[in-house]
Design a protein around this nucleic acid. Structure first.
Lengths: 151, 151
DNA sequence: CACAATTAAATTGTGCACAATTGAATGTTG
DNA sequence: CAACATTCAATTGTGCACAATTTAATTGTG
C-alpha cells in the first residue's frame, strides 16, 4: 500500500480536486456567454430556487462563508442581477433578492445544464449514483472536521 | 427532468465542488501541523515521487499552469523546502529540487494519508472505483474543453 | 547566419476560499 | 434593565487558480 511513499495517482482527494478544476474549465465558455463565474452561477441557481434569502442561508446551501459570499454578491449587485437589503425585523441580516434582470437570466441559463450533462458522457443513473456517493463522503468529512477542530 | 428550473441538488459538478472543499477543510488541521497548504502538499508529493523536475512537468502532473505553480514554489523556497535553478542546457526551464529539509518532511507526512483514508470511511475498493470514475470524467471534460475553446 | 515562430517561466489582474477580526444588532441572565 | 454572550455580515490578510501578457531562450526556415 502506501508504505514508503505517498502516491498521487492513488489519492481520491486529488481525483476530486482535478475533476473539479476540469469542470470549472468546461463550464467557463458557457458561463462566459452569461457573464458569470461558476460560483456566481451557483449563487443564482440558489436564488432561482428560492428568492429573498439571507447571506447566511446562501452560505449554508453552498458551504461557503460570508467572506466568500459578501464580495461575490456585491459583484452580482454591480451587474444589476441582485439587490441587497437589511432585514427590517433583524437588522443584522442582509436579504438578497433577484432583480428582473437576474430573474430573466434564468431563461438563458437553462441550456447550460443540458450541455454539461452531454459533456460528462454519463447516463442519468451514473450521475445520480456518483453524486450520492460524493455527498455521503462530503457529509462524513464535514462532520469529522467539526469534531476535530483542535486535533 | 430539468424543465423549468436548474436544481442544485441534482448537479454532479456541485457535489464535486463541495466535496473538494470538504476535503480541503478535513486536510487543514493535518497539513497545518506540517506548515503546508493542500496545493503545496500536492507539489511535494510529486517531488517526493520524482525530484528535480521543471515547472512545466509539475504543472502537467497537477493540471496547473505557471501562474499558479511559480508563486507556490517561491513560498516553498522561502520555507527552505525546495530550491529553484535554471536548467543549464535550456535556460528557459527552471528545475525544482527538494532540499534536505524538503526530503525530511516526507517522514512526517506519511501519517497523513492514513488519517485521511480512515476519515473517508470508504474501503480501498470503493476509493479505487470512485477515483477511476472521476479520472475518466476529468479526461472526458478536459478533452472536450480543448476542442471547444471557441464554441 | 538572420529572423520569424515557438516555448518556458514569470508577471499582472480578477475572482474565489477561508481564518481571524471587527462592529453592530439581538438574546440572555442575573 | 444592565452586563454579558451570541449572531450576522463585513473586512482584512493569505493563498490558490487562471486568462492574458511579457520577457528571455531556443528552434525552425529561408
Amino acid at each position: 500500500m502506501s508504505a514508503g511513499t505517498i502516491k498521487l495517482d492513488s489519492m481520491l482527494c486529488f481525483a476530486i480536486y482535478a475533476t473539479g478544476h476540469a469542470f470549472t474549465r468546461f463550464y467557463k465558455p458557457r458561463l462566459d456567454a452569461l457573464g458569470l463565474t461558476y460560483p456566481q452561477y451557483l449563487v443564482l441557481i440558489v436564488l432561482w430556487e428560492r428568492d429573498d434569502i439571507t447571506v447566511n442561508a446562501l452560505g449554508n446551501r453552498l458551504f461557503l462563508d460570508s467572506g466568500t459570499i459578501t464580495p461575490l454578491i456585491k459583484r452580482l449587485e454591480a451587474r444589476g442581477l441582485v439587490s441587497r437589503k437589511r432585514d427590517e425585523d433583524d437588522e443584522r441580516q442582509v436579504r438578497i433578492r433577484l432583480t428582473p434582470e437576474g430573474r430573466a437570466l434564468q431563461d438563458k441559463a437553462l441550456a447550460v445544464p443540458l450541455t454539461i450533462a452531454r459533456g460528462t458522457g454519463l447516463t442519468r443513473e451514473d450521475v445520480d449514483r456518483l453524486r450520492a456517493e460524493l455527498l455521503t463522503l462530503r457529509d462524513r468529512l464535514d462532520s469529522q472536521a467539526e469534531g476535530s477542530k483542535s486535533g
